[in-house]
Design a protein around this nucleic acid. Sequence first.
DNA 1: CCGAATCCCATCGGATACTG
DNA 2: CAGTATCCGATGGGATTCGG
Lengths: 119, 119
Amino acid sequence: MAATCVTGKHDQHDVYAAQCPCRAMLDLLANKWSALAIGAMERGPQRFGELRRVLQGVSPKVLTQTLRRLEEVGLVERTVIPAVPLHVEYELTELGRGAARPLRSLREWVEDNIDALEG
Amino acid sequence: MAATCVTGKHDQHDVYAAQCPCRAMLDLLANKWSALAIGAMERGPQRFGELRRVLQGVSPKVLTQTLRRLEEVGLVERTVIPAVPLHVEYELTELGRGAARPLRSLREWVEDNIDALEG
DNA sequence: CCGAATCCCATCGGATACTG
DNA sequence: CAGTATCCGATGGGATTCGG
C-alpha cells in the first residue's frame, strides 16, 4: 500500500498534495514522452537517434528535455562514448526499471482497450 | 500482451505510432490531472467541488477540460442533478475503472519510491 | 453558493536550422 | 550523431464573470 499524507506514515508522500515532491515526480512520469521513452529503454540502452526514431514525432529539443529530467531524478543514466561519430547512450537505472513496470501496464491497457474507447 | 503495429495483429494499435489513436489516448491518460482525477474517482462518484479540493492546485477551468475529455472518450460519466445548489457528479465508467488500475500502480510506485529519487 | 465560460498572460511544446 | 538556438503556436493557470 502506498503511503499518503493523510493516512500513511510518510506525511509528505501524497501525490495529491500540491507541495509534495511526489506530485512533481508524477508530473514527470505522467507525461506522454516520458512514458514512451522509458518504455523504449526497457529493451536496453538506447542511443539518442534510436529513441528519436522510436518515439515517432518527438522533436530533438523535447526529447533532450525529457531525458535530462529523467536523468536528474535518477531514473536514467546518460553515457557519452567518445567516438567519431559521437555516441550517447541512455539506459534505465534500477529505479527506472521499477518505474517502467506501471508505465508498461498503462501502455498495454491503452493498446488493449482502444477499440472500446470513443474518440 | 499488447498488440503493436510492428509485431501484433492490430496494425494500428501501437502507442509509439504517431498517427495511432492509441497515442492520443496515452496523451490523455499520461497527464498529471487525468491520473489524479481518475484516482480520486476510484472511491466512487465525486462532485466537481470535491474533485477540486482533492486535486490540490487545479484550477476550475483545467479541471473542467480534463473531465470533459475523459467523458468524451467514455472513461467518465457526468451526471447533472438538478438541485439548489446544483450538483454535478463525475463517475468512472467500467472502462474508466479499468484504466484506473495501471494509473493507481503508477501513483503508488511514486509514493513508495520517492525517497530513493533525487530532485 | 456551485459549476463553468471568458479574457489575459506565462509557460511549454513543436518545427526548423544550425553547431560541436 | 547528438544536441543547441530560435521562433512560433498551443496549452495551462489566474482572475473575473456569468448562469442556475
